[in-house]
């Protein structure tokens, strides 16, 4: 049961990451490969505030959202100078820079040593405090956050703001002719997406209780992008499906009986083959409307 709860918590965390990145990649058509950086900023903000200042988890989530949003605004301003492939490459560069900060600003982040002993969330007033001490309670919290992010994302994509994002994806020049300042829209959705990713980071830090820079490396950005593409671009339910599939598939492969000597290597090969086959026969993803 604990194992299932653990996997569902991971699904909730990666679901949030998939939903938030889909707003940028799927709905707006901006191929961002820097999402792990905002995920990491959220995780580090919560870890530092909880371990060094004893701040409440929910306050740390708020602080993480603010820090991520401010950094995303600055990065987004620079990224707005680029288009298409150059946008992807530049966002790639920002992931490397922020990873380097996690790794080398040792006074703040403890560098490669990571931050252990991160506390669990608690809430209440004065003497009535409720500490989320077991994984089932944490799962409820993570699902609440996932639901909040899902409905916020749905509200965004169904609003007039969301329709302009889709128009930017389809033909940015055309929408500019109608007098829309596309920079404002692209920047806004990038900041919103980063803020959402930081919530996933806060949950991750508090759940695992230990973070180090290796969790926020480029490969993590690519993994989140894979969730979005595999689940389906421009489809929120697709992001949830993608997260579910990519979290559960490697776990399911652990139960395929293979000799100990080759099991680990074979699982990776089978995992890769399944992903290739899926992209061959379902290029728009599991529930996608649109493909790159």
């Amino acid at each position: 049961m604990e194992y299932l709860i653990h996997l569902t918590i991971l699904f909730a965390i990666y679901g949030i990451l998939g939903l938030s990145l889909n707003l940028v990649v799927g709905y707006t058509g901006l191929l961002s490969v820097t999402h792990a950086a905002f995920y990491g900023i959220g995780a580090y903000a919560t870890a530092i505030l909880l371990t060094s200042f004893g701040v409440n988890f929910f306050v740390s989530v708020l602080a993480a959202i603010i820090v991520s949003a401010v950094i995303a605004l600055l990065i987004g301003l620079i990224l707005s100078k680029f288009d298409d492939d150059y946008y992807a490459l530049a966002s790639f560069g920002f992931n490397i820079i922020i990873f380097s900060v996690f790794l080398n600003w040792q006074e703040l982040t403890r560098g490669p040593l990571g931050i252990p002993g991160i506390g669990k969330p608690s809430f209440g007033i004065s003497n009535f405090q409720f500490l989320i001490s077991n994984n089932l309670e944490f799962l409820i919290l993570a699902l609440l956050f996932l639901g909040l992010i899902y409905f916020t994302s749905r509200f965004i994509v169904n609003s007039s703001f969301g329709r302009i994002l889709k128009a930017i994806r389809e033909d940015e020049k055309a929408i500019q002719i109608f007098g829309y300042n596309t920079l404002y829209y692209k920047l806004a959705i990038f900041v919103i997406s980063a803020a959402m990713a930081s919530v996933a980071g806060s949950l991750f830090a508090s759940y695992i209780t230990f973070i180090d820079p290796s969790s926020f490396w480029l490969m993590e950005s690519i993994f989140i992008l894979a969730i979005v593409i595999l689940g389906g671009l421009s489809n929120l339910k697709g992001s949830l499906l993608g997260a579910l599939f990519l979290i559960l598939l490697p776990e399911a492969l652990r139960f395929v009986g293979m000799p100990n000597d080759i099991a680990a290597q074979m699982r990776q090969v089978i995992y890769g083959v399944i992903l290739i086959l899926l992209m061959l026969y379902r290029p728009q993803g599991l529930a996608g409307e649109y493909k790159i």
Partner: peptide, 24 residues
């Protein structure tokens, strides 16, 4: 013997592996 794989570059699966060994 139930063997699992966790390396320095795959730390994000460490929790899943530990839960699987312990709970399943």
């Amino acid at each position: 013997l139930i063997s699992e794989d966790v390396s320095l570059d795959k730390l994000n699966v460490a929790g899943s592996v530990a839960h699987k060994l312990v709970d399943i």
